[in-house]
Amino acid sequence: MVPPAMFDEVSFASYIPDPNEPSQAVAVAKAEEFAQKVAKIRGGGRRGLFGKKAPATGAGLYLDGGFGVGKTHLLASIYHSSPSPKAFGTFVELTHVVGALGFNQAVEQLSNHSVLCIDEFELDDPGDTMLVSRLLAELSQRGVSIVATSNTLPGQLGEGRFAAQDFLREIKKLGSIFETLRVDGPDYRHRDLPPAPDPIPSDELHELADTVDGATLDSFDELCRHLGTLHPSRYKKLVEGVTAVYLDGVHAAPDQSVALRLVVLADRLYDESIPVTVSGAKLDEIFTPEMLAGGYKKKYLRATSRLLALSRFEVTAS
């Protein structure tokens, strides 16, 4: 549970705030303060009657904002600045860890960490919400600080998806753990850049794929079918060692389940900075207007932003 390779070298100093967006400079300062607080909590604690220290309650910070404003950059900077042991992962990866270890073992494994950094905090079902709410409450009480990023304020997580009273009660608990910090600004991935490249003809796509060592070439439909046979936690393994991805016959996702799998794949490709070239439809046409009007809108917009950025990455021919 470490930051993706793209964020191996980032720091507070390497975050360049947009001068037109004052919230970004504030966010850098607050994030740096939080990292200092993490170290202090980990080294502190209250001494008890018999000389044993009781752990201080962990701190909480929630970075909210649109796509491409540098929230993951700040999250990784907090991770790099915090004492070990520490953990970094997406919300989905965190639920996978709990599923693999079991709740009690996950608490034990993480409770000696200084900080848990959670990227892309999103709640897709009440079960995950209650699981994570309980996990974070337990870890916070044991002195683990928690920092998360999302495109939705804690009180609005799950909005448009579920209305169960139990779900809403858990949402409020989560919100109480964090100090919320808003980060505004345009998506840096597309700031002052030309439009993403258009799809290319299928025969040209095949020719290009043959010139690149380590590239993959797949029919979009076959890829979608294959993703349905794998648990999303395995998508990271799927792209290991891939230098470029070529997709033939791209079109709108046929349904929500396929679309959500493509979101996870887009995230893993982006983590590894793997260029994407396609034939067929444009990458911003994968998610239909109906999908973009639903409860997963922010997921789809983030995935589109990342796929368009990957389509601009330079591919090195062998």
Rank of each mutant, 00 (worst) to 15 (best):
T90H: 10
D119L: 15
R42Q: 14
S145P: 06
L205G: 02
G99W: 00
L269H: 10
A31R: 04
Y270E: 00
A163C: 03
L94C: 09
F67P: 01
G241I: 07
I177R: 03
S311E: 13
S145W: 04
K172R: 15
C224I: 01
M291G: 06
A59F: 10
L139A: 01
H226K: 09
M130G: 14
T152A: 04
R189Q: 08
A215T: 04
F50D: 05
A252Y: 07
K297Y: 01
D221Q: 12
V278D: 01
L193R: 13
D184E: 15
E21L: 05
A100T: 15
N20C: 07
F12A: 08
M6I: 14
A163L: 05
L101D: 14
Y15L: 06
L301Y: 07
G214T: 07
A27D: 04
M291W: 03
S114C: 01
D267H: 13
K298C: 02
T216G: 04
D192V: 06
F167M: 11
V242C: 12
G70K: 09
L193Q: 14
P289D: 06
G295L: 02
C224M: 07
V10E: 02
N112Y: 07
I171C: 01
G143V: 04
L308H: 00
A266M: 05
V92E: 07
G280E: 12
V97N: 01
V132T: 12
D213L: 01
G99A: 06
V245A: 13
P154T: 11
V69E: 10
D218T: 06
V26M: 15
G48C: 13
K173L: 14
I78T: 14
D124H: 13
A5Q: 04
A148F: 05
A27S: 09
G185W: 06
L123H: 00
Q256D: 04
P126W: 00
S202A: 08
L223S: 11
F91M: 15
L193F: 01
V28E: 03
V107P: 03
L307Q: 02
A244P: 12
P4V: 11
G241L: 11
P85K: 08
Q36D: 05
H251F: 09
F167A: 09
V250P: 01
F313V: 01
H73S: 04
L94Y: 11
F7P: 08
T95P: 02
K173W: 02
S318K: 10
A76G: 03
A39R: 04
